[in-house]
Design a protein around this nucleic acid. Structure first.
Lengths: 230, 230
DNA sequence: TCAAAAGTGTTCTGTTTACACCCATGG
DNA sequence: CCATGGGTGTAAACAGAACACTTTTGA
């Protein structure tokens, strides 16, 4: 901490920007908004806002995400603080990036449309303003690391899902094809899934078993971590 | 980014606090300073300072660390941004924590003494001001993760070191005893060490071979990462 | 001569990988 | 009746874990 006094030090604006991940139709997506204000009006950017005097960063991130999606109890984590001096052309601003995982089916679609926001597959996302591309890159790397060390899926999938959906989620996060049998053996070895007596016949004639997460065991595994390595 | 204008938003002080790790006599240590100013005069804290208008966070962290240790080319990484509203009783302040790895033998001892700073073994460190204990905790967890996924030691050990020193370093980071033979086999499988024709006879009568890192292969492994798992 | 640290390989066990066929059903 | 996606097991290769004795030499 300081060896000078607080009074003659520089105060700076703090932005919070959110990388919001969702999963839909077998692909990992991010939520972007089209800016309706200067600078960079009309360009795509992450959802963000400024930190207020009376809240901490987590609270700011939750508030900002709620304003856009209407969702409150979702998974969010602080990612990194970006501080390049000229990162924002208008004023010196630090931005603390957060990433969030949400179930696309749960969000408030109207809210999102009112913000002229849109979901983009990772490989089809447009160029973003400022240093937002870097933020997204870092968030993807973090998500990948997380997927390899802890269970993931509860936050991104609907309450009931098929084994194939879960595999596709992992494939799109890790960005590689996985072997069906090895994936199932591995995921079952963690004991975090419950197979229901229901089938989903949307994708196949035979129908695929639906699963849910055993939330107790899931949370245990989140705490202790594991080595996915597949 | 903002959906309001920049002008009526809150500006906030940004501190940068550094968790400085060193390794000496078989134990992992951190560098702490005794505060000679209010608030919390006389208590132990991390080394820190405030971000200036014309620098980014990495630059601030480097500057602050140089002021204390006289070292410039060391390993530093941003850890996390702490933002509890009342974390600093004097003013609303965000603190961006950085952690650094340095070779204890290389630093400027006088500089450190002039700052009334001192090295503490992790288990003997005093209570720290504000949220600095939390910062240290998080830094240790990060260092642990790093040691399991990338080579570590170049930054913390002297240029020549024994296999036993390297093992002790891992043991003190991972906080558990490792099997001597398994450790050597594993570390050799990475091909990042060069055995010299010199021996160190400080610790034993027989003398232990000295090693250096093959910096090229070391850096390759830093980039690609590995799975230590031992 | 003995105490203290250094050096060195093998076996066993568990995990990861690669791989192919039958099933159910709607169109 | 056949195209489409769903479900299932095993063997080979590899990586991790456990483990004990000999060497050197200064005191």
């Amino acid at each position: 901490m300081p060896s000078n006094i607080y009074s003659n030090t520089d105060k700076i604006l703090i932005a919070v920007d959110c990388i919001i991940f969702g999963f839909d139709k077998g692909a990992l997506k991010i939520l972007l908004i089209k800016r309706d204000f200067e600078p960079e009006l009309g360009k795509w950017s992450l959802m963000g806002g400024f930190l207020k005097e009376e809240e901490n960063l987590d609270e700011a991130a939750i508030r900002i995400l709620y304003d856009l999606t209407g969702l409150r109890t979702i998974y969010m984590e602080q990612l990194y603080t970006f501080s390049k001096v000229d990162r924002d052309p208008v004023a010196r601003t630090l931005s603390v990036a957060y990433y969030a995982l949400i179930d696309i089916a749960m969000h408030d679609k109207e809210l999102i449309q009112n913000h002229s926001a849109q979901w983009f597959s990772l490989d089809k996302a447009p160029d973003l303003i400022f240093d937002h591309n870097k933020m997204v890159e870092k968030a993807i790397a973090r998500l990948k690391r997380r997927a390899l060390s802890k269970p993931i899926g509860f936050e991104l999938l609907p309450p009931k899902f098929t084994m194939r959906q879960l595999q596709k989620l992992y494939e799109s996060i890790l960005n590689k094809k996985l072997d069906k049998r090895n994936f199932i053996n591995k995921i079952n070895s963690f004991g975090i899934l419950v197979r229901l007596d229901e089938k989903d016949t949307n994708a196949s004639k035979k129908g695929a078993y639906l699963y849910t997460f055993d939330k107790v065991k899931y949370d245990e595994k989140v705490l202790e971590g594991f080595n996915f390595k597949i």
